[in-house]
Amino acid sequence: MKNFRKEILGLIVIVFLSVSATCQEKTSSSADSNSKVEKKDKKRKKKKKYKLPEIDLSHWSVTTPELNHKGSAMNIEPPEILDYATDERLLPYMYNDSTLGALVFYSFPSDATTANTKYTRSELREQMVPGDNNTNWTFADGAYMKGKLQMGDVSKSSDGKYHKVIIMQIHGRLTNEQRDLIGQKDNNAPPILKIYWQDGKIRVKTKELKNLSASDNEILGKDAWDDDKGFTFEQEVGFSKFTLEVEVSDGKMVVILNKNEYAVYDSIHMKRWGVFENYFKAGNYFQSRDEGAFAKVNYYELEVKH
């Protein structure tokens, strides 16, 4: 009888231990499952983090493809531009993509063109003094601009090629005295630098004097300058992010793509350009009038130094 009781007790102990182990396994499995769920939730939360572009707009104005009440292209200056994220006038053309962390510039053909062009733009204009276009810089002063950007989306023409977009510029400007000297109605001078996104590559265009013997007064007119043949960087950027730098010094201009390709301009044309004041431009200067055409340019970083 004693032996029988011992056997029964032994069986009870074995059953108890087995049940206990099973429960522990289930508990452990449940804990592991909960841990995995928590990790997934954390990953999801991390993915949902909003990112903003690293761009200070306090020294930039912007022109958009929309008409203002005067029938000209809309232009917003500091400090109003700082509220671009809630400004209904700017929302369609300049807005944050918080998933990418980019400031998007959107443009398409419209009636909102600016002087001396048939094309529209959603483009920033540098203002060394916020709200003032009369304070600019010369090559002798020196200047530097760096942007981290990306072609977001762009339409194609009837021949199947992507439409061109100017993504950066250095624009010349006449002082009031120079303007009056040559009898011009406005202060516009030619752009000494235009950087294009063209067929997935970066193309640079600059200006050359038609007559190197022309006087300093004679070269103030737009007719004194012509486009050069242009230069295309070897690297194809496509729709990937890339970095552009522009360095300006007395008689010299350097354009750098991704810190490994350089376009250097230090000819007599650059030296003679020293008579002009200048300002930087960046964004989306769309180069098409095709119906239904459009482009989006994503800027992640933009900085200027003098």
Rank of each mutant, 00 (worst) to 15 (best):
T27Q: 13
K49S: 14
M128N: 03
I170E: 10
N116F: 11
N188W: 09
G221D: 09
F105R: 08
G200K: 12
Q184W: 01
V154S: 06
D180R: 07
L90G: 03
W273S: 13
I170Y: 09
K207F: 00
E247L: 05
N211T: 08
V165P: 06
Y196N: 10
D180N: 12
E245M: 10
V275A: 12
S213M: 14
S20G: 00
S20V: 01
K229N: 05
D216S: 10
N96P: 03
K252L: 15
G230I: 04
Y285D: 06
A263C: 11
Y84C: 01
D87V: 05
Q235F: 01
N278E: 05
K48N: 11
V165G: 09
N211E: 08
N134K: 12
D290K: 15
N278H: 14
A214L: 06
I195N: 02
G230R: 12
N284E: 01
A293S: 12
G160Q: 11
S98M: 11
K47T: 07
I170R: 07
K43Y: 13
D141E: 07
R121P: 04
I8K: 13
H163E: 03
Y285I: 02
T232F: 01
K229S: 13
N133Q: 04
S213Q: 09
K45N: 02
N34G: 14
M168F: 10
N68G: 00
E123M: 09
R289I: 09
D228C: 06
G160T: 11
L82E: 07
I76N: 00
P109Y: 13
F286P: 01
V129R: 14
D87W: 10
T22G: 14
T113H: 13
G152S: 14
D226L: 13
V297A: 05
I192S: 14
